[in-house]
Design a protein around this nucleic acid. Structure first.
Lengths: 343, 343
DNA sequence: TATTTTTACGAAAACGTTTGCGATATGAGA
DNA sequence: TCTCATATCGCAAACGTTTTCGTAAAAATA
């Protein structure tokens, strides 16, 4: 049934044209040393014979794959898909392919993915750390071989690799200050493991904003969760159990925030009148949940583009020049109904 | 700064052990012809020297990449990520890698992705068609080379490739019948291009359910949109302009349905009292929107597993046996508040 | 002991491309 | 006519692995 037709090579083209494979090879890559007319003949014959370049053989010879690996901690998010779109835009422009690997927020899978991409001999790596990734050892292998690694969003501070991030401290500060401006006095922060630096920064911004406005910082107002769906419910129940009741919540994840709001509402809390809520990421749910969710928006597409540009830059430079180590992308507070308290 | 250490090969191991590269190669792949003790020595030396197998050379020699390509029409959806998880589970079990390609619901990109994966010489393909993909020509190249292609979810009916789908007709019928059972008499269907067979099937189910229950089928109640965010708003406005007002809506996409509900509510429509709503996919938004959205649920993970198993089966069979051409996975109606009319 | 079988390994070709270097032909300049 | 650039192209090695076939030694059999 299936007919496996013979794969045709540059030898076949060479033979048909009474040329050498070397000339055919050069002709196909538009080498200036080949006569224009010969090139034409080669191209035509290649098309006629249904030739397809054997990337594997080419990769073996050149020791390059023209592929860059992307490791993401999740896929089901507007932010990540925007980043991927940005990466793809730049890489295809530069003639590189991408391989997307998904860690499912799982350190073990992230390591497996890194090893896999290393095996596949990608020319570069763009990655965002999983939730529980404790160290960067699995990226060391790339650096040892001179393969550029660029981190985005979820990064490790004390690493001298290139990082593309937002100012999480500022975002946390802004969100908190906004709640304060709405008249909130008791603001709960729901966030994740402070080891992961994005969360620590947001925490620090939250803390400093409180102090700057003469509000007390209380440990019991900081809830460390996993930002899952369940987490939203738990956070809400926790908040409901507090006395006095908080009047503002800053949850560093939109989906969790939405679930939390829902649970609060089910228990008779009015949002934003009783409790104002701010999320993080500007996910699609922000506009679905009622009231619509105030959040921190940041440009995924742009971050992807910057990361990709940086990798390709490193790839094209022969010299090992000094590189920018951290690129901070602007982020902004998007005020919606969930935090707009009546004055 | 970056030190590119010399890549070590089986020759280096062979030399160090005074063996031939052939023996080392066999030893590394645990070939039964090699003495156990020799294998051990090879493994140890490989580890000591920091050997990593050159997949590219191996691929060139074996003419296999042990990689299967996955083309998806979107990433930002629970369904798709579940499918990917299912595919990954099976493929890694079988020792295959996957390359995820994203078509962004764009035919041109889908073609580019297919060509790319063809270039990369993947051993198999799992794919779901983009919104506007008019034909399957870009998959013909795989079939010509005997590379298995499996379609899932968005498939083309009149193709003899393997397809993993749900019974969209039944789903459409069920959803409509449910609305009828709730007392709806004027049910609007919001769906997408009927050329894409999933949408046609749902449409057919909707139509037949109406007729089976002695309700009139009216063309004006069928709204063909693109199931985007904007589409939800448009559908709502259209519905509001109708006279008499419809009392039920079946939108074949959860996110659009959520936006539509929102717009309807903003115009004073009560859901489900005035209009009952049913979506499709069981996305995360179903539980965020208020009231929670009745929808059709189907098992992405399982579909991914089945698709992957099928590809691998085809890969491992030497003989070109006859294959199952269509696998239908169960789907079910999930009733939530958005459609529960008070009796 | 002679012969066959088994066990363990090696030689070398093959996968298809790229590329440094050499070779040939053509025309210009002396 | 001879020399020397210049323009085109071919030779052959290299990339690192896998695998067919062959061989030598050891073990088993006659």
């Amino acid at each position: 049934m299936r007919h496996k037709s013979k794969e045709i090579t540059i030898y076949d083209i060479a033979q048909a044209l009474e040329l050498s494979p070397a000339t055919v090879s050069r002709g196909l890559q538009n080498h200036p040393l080949i006569k224009e007319e010969t090139k034409q003949r080669i191209l035509e014959k290649a098309l006629a014979l249904g030739y397809r370049r054997n990337t594997i053989a080419s990769n073996l010879r050149t020791q390059k794959t023209h592929t860059i690996g992307v490791i993401v901690h999740e896929l089901n998010s507007n932010f990540i898909t925007s980043v991927l779109a940005g990466i793809e835009k730049i890489t295809t422009q530069a003639g590189y392919d991408i391989i997307i690997a998904h860690s499912y927020e799982n350190y073990t899978k992230e390591v497996a993915n890194a090893n896999n991409l290393f095996q596949k001999r990608v020319d570069g790596i763009i990655t965002s750390l999983a939730f529980d990734t404790p160290n960067l050892d699995h990226y060391r292998q790339f650096e040892e071989k001179g393969i550029p690694v660029v981190f985005f969003d979820r990064v490790e501070e004390n690493s001298d690799s290139v990082k593309v991030i937002i100012d999480n401290y500022r975002a946390g500060y802004q969100a908190t200050e906004h709640l304060i401006a709405q008249g909130c006095k008791r603001i709960v922060l729901v966030t994740a493991n402070l080891q992961r630096n994005v969360y620590f920064k947001r925490y620090a911004g939250y803390k400093d904003a409180l102090l700057a406005h003469q509000l007390p910082f209380e440990e019991q107002y900081v809830l460390i969760k996993d930002l899952s769906e369940q987490c939203g419910v738990e956070a809400a129940l926790h908040i409901l159990s507090m006395n006095p009741l908080p009047d503002g919540v800053f949850i560093t994840n939109d989906f969790s925030a939405a679930v939390c709001m829902q649970t609060l509402k089910e228990h008779g809390i009015r949002i934003p009148e009783d409790i104002a809520v701010v999320g993080f990421n500007n996910d699609a749910v922000c506009k679905i949940i009622e009231p619509k969710l105030t959040t921190i928006d940041y440009p995924g597409m742009e971050m992807g583009e910057i990361a990709a540009k940086n990798v390709i830059e490193q790839l094209q430079e022969e010299a090992t020049t000094q590189h920018i180590s951290t690129i901070v992308v602007r982020s902004e507070l998007l005020v919606r109904a969930s935090s707009a308290k009546p004055q």
